[in-house]
């Protein structure tokens, strides 16, 4: 590709990504005995790294910055806060 050509990202190549998972000191973990699957955490996660799979809420920790919004907003207190071992 010519340097002057304008590009649009398709797929992962050419996408600027930072390994933001290294920032966190705590990581969220869903306690499925308490989780009712309301999706409040999914709405408010600033990284949109919470998704739904087979009707269950799942957290993808690969970019999670550990801000704690999911834990703060969870109406059932179903998110445990676990210190990262580093």
């Amino acid at each position: 590709m010519n340097d002057n050509e304008y590009r649009v990202v398709w797929g992962k190549s050419g996408l600027y990504t930072l390994e933001t998972s290294a920032w966190r000191t705590f990581r969220p973990q869903i306690d499925y005995s308490k989780c009712v699957g309301c999706g409040t955490c999914l709405l408010y996660c600033p990284l949109c790294c919470i998704g739904k799979a087979d009707g269950r809420i799942v957290i993808d920790l690969s970019y999670c910055k550990g801000c704690g919004i999911c834990r703060e907003e969870c109406p059932k207190q179903a998110i445990d806060w676990i210190k990262e071992a580093r």
């Binding site: 998972s21 990284l47 949109c48």
Partner: peptide, 21 residues
């Protein structure tokens, strides 16, 4: 809203250097 947002594609890079929260 939850199902709608869960079904839509995230068009921003997963790791950008915005602050926590």
């Amino acid at each position: 809203t939850v199902d709608y947002l869960a079904s839509r594609e995230d068009l921003v890079s997963p790791g950008i250097s915005a602050c926590q929260g």
